[in-house]
Each structure stands twice: as C-alpha cells, then as structure tokens.
Design a protein around this nucleic acid. Structure first.
Lengths: 342, 342
DNA sequence: GATCATCGTCGATGCGCTTCGACGGGGACC
DNA sequence: GGTCCCCGTCGAAGCGCATCGACGATGATC
C-alpha cells in the first residue's frame, strides 16, 4: 500500500510537502501541487486513517449511538441514520455505529479510545442515563431529542409543540366542533420520550385557547387492531365535525383504514390530520392532510450542529436547542364545516 | 488522556510489558499482571485506537455497506444492521457504516485508508457492480445475498429456494387445489435482487413436481391498495381450496386485511402462508402460518463468517455460500381441505 | 558445578502521518 | 546596495502503540 513517502519520492519533494498539499495548511506553488497530485493519482495513494488520527489528533469519524434492542422503534430510524451518514460524508467524515444497549460505557469507550471526534445520540428520553455521562465528555455531543435537562448539551429535534399547535389551530379555524388526538404508541409513552408530552401538552393548550373541546385517545398501537380500537374510542358518531389528529407516521394508514371500515369518509364527515412525513402522507390511501415530521431535516440539522461544534472549537457555540419547524400541507382528508356529511 | 506509558510508570514496568499484558502474546507473571491491571483501572487507561491501528496493522473495525438511497427497501434493514453491530462488538470490534450510494469507490476507500479489517456488503443484487471491486480487495469481504457470480467471495443468505419448497410442499400435502404466489414488490424485482428469482423458481418447480396448478401474481406493492389488487388478481372465487403464499414481511398484513375485506376467511376458505419473520407472523391479524425469514440469523452468520476469515487468514476458508434454513410454523391461517368454506 | 534452555522483562525501533522551526531565495523598500 | 520580510520548501520530532531481539534469572540436565 503506497505511503506519502512514496508520493514524495515520485514527485521529487519532501514528505512534509505532500502533507501540506493535502491539508492546505501552508502555501504550495502551483507547479509542486500539480506534480504531487499527479504522483498521488499515479500510485493510487490514500492516507492511512490510523496514522492520521495518531499524528493529527482527529479521526474524521462521528460516533452515532442508535437505540436498537427490543424496545426501540425500529421503523423510523433508518432515515435518520442514512441522512447522518450521507451528511458527514460530505465533510469527508465517516460514521461509527454504536448500539445504545451497550449503555453509557459506549460513550466513554468512544472518547477514551479516541474512536471519533464527535458523538450523536439518538432517541433521547426525558430522563436519559446517557446524558450525564455525555455531558462529562471532552468530545462534543449532539442530542437528537430534547431531554428534561440537557446539561448544556446541544439538542436538535422536530418542534413538536409547534406541530401540535399548527394542527389544532387549523382545525379550530376551519369550523370543527372538537379535536381528538390519537396518541403515540404505548412503547413511546413508557420509554418516557419527551416529545410525546411536548406534543400532547401543546395540543391541549392550543385547543383550550381556541375554546375547542378536545380529547386524547391513547396509547394507540400502529396496527389494524389498535387503530380500530382508537377509532371506536374517538366517539365519532356524535353530531358535529370532528378533527382527528393522528400522531406518528406508523399510525396514519391503520387509522385511515379503520375509519373507512367503520363507515366514515375522511375529508367529508371527519377531518384527519396526520403528524407524519410528507412522503407517508402523500402515499396514504387516501392522501392525508399532514403536519410534516421529517427525520431527514432533523438529521441534517444534527450534522450541521456537529460540524459547527467541530469547526469552532467552542468559539461560536450552537444554540442549546435547535428545532425544525413543521409545515402543514392540505390533502384530501380535510373536511369543511357545513359540507354535507355522509 | 492516559497512555500506556503512564500505566507503565505507575505499575513500575516498561511500556512494552503493558502492551504484552493487554495482548497476552508473551507470558507475564501473576504479580506484574496484577500491578498493571490495577494501574490501568486506577488511571482509566484505554488504548488509543489510531495508534493501535498504525502499529498493529489492524483496526478492529468492520465496514458495513448498506443500501440506502431512494431505491432501497428501508424497512427490513435495521435488524440486519443491529445484529451485525452487536455481533462484532462481542469480538471487541466496531462497525463503520457506509452507504452504498457512495458506490464502489467506498470499498477502495475503506481498504486504501485502512479504515477496517473486513467488509460486509448488504443487499447484493444479481449483477452488482460492487462485486468486481470487492473481489479485487485485499481485505476480506462477505456478501449478504447471493449474486449471479460471487467471484469467490463468501455469501450468506436465507435459503429462499428451501423456503419456497417448504411452503409449497406443505400446501401440496394438505389437500390444496392450487397455489398462488404473491410476489415481491416491483422495486425488488427491478433491482434484480437474486432471491426473488430463486424463490419463484423453486416455488414453481415444487408445485410442478407436486402436480399442483400454480400462478405467480406480481409484483405486489406492500400497501393496502397493492394488496387489494393482488387479491383480486389471485382469483380466489374459483371453487377449490387455494393456498396463498405471500412473499415478504411487508406484504403479509396488507394481504390479510385485503382478503378479509374481500369476504374471505383465512384459515377456512383459503390458506395464507407468509414468508416473513416469526415476529411479524405472530403479530399479524390474524396470526399467520409462516416460513421464517430471519434477518438476524443471516446477520449472525455473516458475523461468524467475517471472523472466520479474520482469524484464519485464508487457512480454513469458509464455505462459498452459507444459507440459513427456514422453518415452517403453523398458525391460524392454515385451512384444511374438506372443512366447510365460509 | 558447569551448561543450556526457558521464563519474564526491558529497550529500541518503526508504523505513516502532522506539524514546527529553519532556511534559501526573491521582491519591496529605504 | 543593503535590509526586511514573506513565500515555498525541507528536515526532524513526535503521536501511542506493537513487536523484535536481547538479557538476566531461574531451574533442569549430565
């Protein structure tokens, strides 16, 4: 395997010059740069990552701690991971994948062995044991999800409060008589993921401010059976126009299906507002009005935060909490008050 | 951050002795070993991964190339990734995650920069451009999926041919009049993933040998609409007992739902045989008889293969193709011939 | 009791890179 | 014409570990 010394010999320069060509940390004449680059290409040189890490004290690796294990919501995770992987690659970084069931010791390992320059923690719970450890590290850490006490660590997430506000405000403004929130799956509630509370609280507060009766049904399992039960519990047979807010991508289609089977017509006698990705909303049958919940946006924000931390070395610290603002898109499940019910 | 030299000083030994305590490559007296280990614990020593990689010429990292990007079946992927991550950690290895949309150059980068000791390639297609590159590497590569020409690279996968044989044999033996195979999603067919053909061919051959009429419906999208269309196309209104084989975890529930909506009674007037994970089969409504398709088993086999390659350095080469044998489990969707239809 | 292998430890070297200080050779400037 | 300075390059010194040869101290062997 060729080394930078080989490149240097071929280009007729010193090895340190090769290094400066790569890093750009000292001015290099056009002529020499060209010779070095040609030499690198000719022998197919690639810098040894281990040597780089040792000499340069940086690994060009981001550690990603993902919540696997039986308890994890395994479905929506991959877009996060993918976007982060792709995002860091644009900075010529790589991703080291660590599973959360290794526990907080995974964090000290990543730091102690110098396996990465920064760490991203996913699926942060309201009271997460990893946070205290994370806060004590010297490597920068970014949290995806907002815990009760971030301990000064930067967090990124979707703005769930704003999502709930958007959804309920829209329903209140378009003549609905009540709002029913179909909640998150029991698994998420039990794990005490913070966004569940932020979403629910905001939904209730907004409905209350608008003078709109509201109700939270939940937890709801994202299965045909769970959706059926939730629809039953929603009490849609009362007179008046109900707005149903469905929280979570996985629950949207089952709830739609259950509604139709129960004889309802989303978009006519009931409004369904999904809190889910635009892709899922558009692909649903029928296409569902939604407030966007985009994991990719969150991941991109996380990557940006990581490199802000990495570049600035504490200088321009990123905001403590950065939230992605959701967006409401009308599709076919919005019913207008006054239109004839089925 | 403490180094092995610090440990050596504290324990009153030389640095090389500390190294030998860690590696076990030379005999160490009980007394010295104890002192060194205490010293390591006291100052919280952890070996620097970069220095190790440089001096020892091994990184203790496995590169995992996953097929992200728009074309990928993103749903079933995570169990693979998780199991591999957990599996290599048992050997004190880590996983470097690379997305396949970086293309074959990702492989040369992993090798050239010495980022990992072995590579696992996922979602191998029948004619995969990564394979030729992979075969030319000096780092060992394991394929998950069986391409048309593995170029000598070891492959692991589920035995799809056996899965189809199991399913169809069972149906043939229990008095069914015909077999309908609901195929894989169009996306998988288009990508020319090899298992689709292996499964279908084997299903047809087995049905033919059993003298059973058969039919392949497909491609089938794993959505309510796609399932409905597939159920229609299956022609279940003909007299006689039909066995429906549903290929792919994602399609099982939609097909079941569509069948019920069309007025059928899985387990009475029609048999449904899922080709999916046991977990999905048990969780389905109703629980579905299935041939197990366990990504975790495949991943474990992949990890085992990786370390066989790593330990043996070519000595005891693993088999070219190692397949996980599926298992048939009866649940509530198996109908018996002669029982009254609905 | 001299010889020789064996065990347990040490010192030195090098992995391939980054980075620092040094230094020769031009301009720019007085 | 001399001084100063900056540009572009080089040599050397590590980064923290693994590994090799050396070597003193045992114990075994005849």
């Amino acid at each position: 395997m060729p080394t930078s010394k080989d490149v240097a010999r071929l280009a007729g320069v010193s090895q340190s010059t090769v290094s400066y060509v790569m890093s750009g940390k000292r001015p290099i004449s056009e002529e020499v740069r060209r010779r070095v680059e040609e030499a690198m290409a000719e022998i197919g040189f690639q810098p040894n990552a281990g040597a780089r890490a040792l000499a340069g004290r940086r690994t060009s690796v981001v550690g990603l701690v993902v919540p696997f294990g039986p308890s994890a919501d395994t479905t929506g995770l991959l877009p996060f991971v993918e976007t982060i992987a792709t995002g860091v690659r644009e900075h010529d970084y790589d991703v080291l994948l660590v599973t959360a069931d290794e526990g907080p010791s995974a964090l000290t390992r990543l730091e102690g062995r110098r396996l990465c320059d920064a760490i991203v923690l996913m699926e942060i719970e309201a009271h997460d044991p990893r946070i205290e450890v994370a806060a004590s590290l010297r490597v920068p850490v970014v949290l995806i999800g907002v815990p009760q006490d971030p301990r000064g660590l930067p967090c990124v997430d979707v703005d769930f409060a704003e999502a709930a506000r958007l959804a309920v405000t829209e329903l209140a403004g378009s003549g609905h008589d009540r709002v029913v929130v179909l909640g998150h799956p029991a698994e998420a509630v039990l794990r005490d993921v913070n966004y569940v509370r932020r979403f629910t609280d905001s939904a209730l507060a907004t409905a209350h401010d608008a003078g709109l009766p509201y109700e939270v049904v939940g937890p709801v399992e994202p299965t045909p059976l769970g959706a059926e039960r939730a629809v039953e519990a929603a009490g849609l047979d009362r007179p008046g126009l109900t707005g149903v807010v469905v929280a979570g991508t996985a629950a949207v289609q089952p709830v739609l299906t259950a509604l139709v089977r129960a004889g309802h017509h989303p978009g006519r006698d009931v409004t369904v507002m999904g809190v889910c990705t635009d892709a899922a909303a558009a692909a649903a049958e029928p296409p569902v009005t939604n407030v966007s919940l985009e994991p990719r946006d969150v991941s991109r924000l996380a990557v940006r935060t990581v490199f802000r931390l990495l570049d600035a070395e504490g200088a321009d610290a990123p905001p403590d909490v950065a939230l992605v603002t959701p967006r409401l898109t009308h599709r076919s499940t919005t019913a207008r008050a006054g239109a004839p019910a089925a």
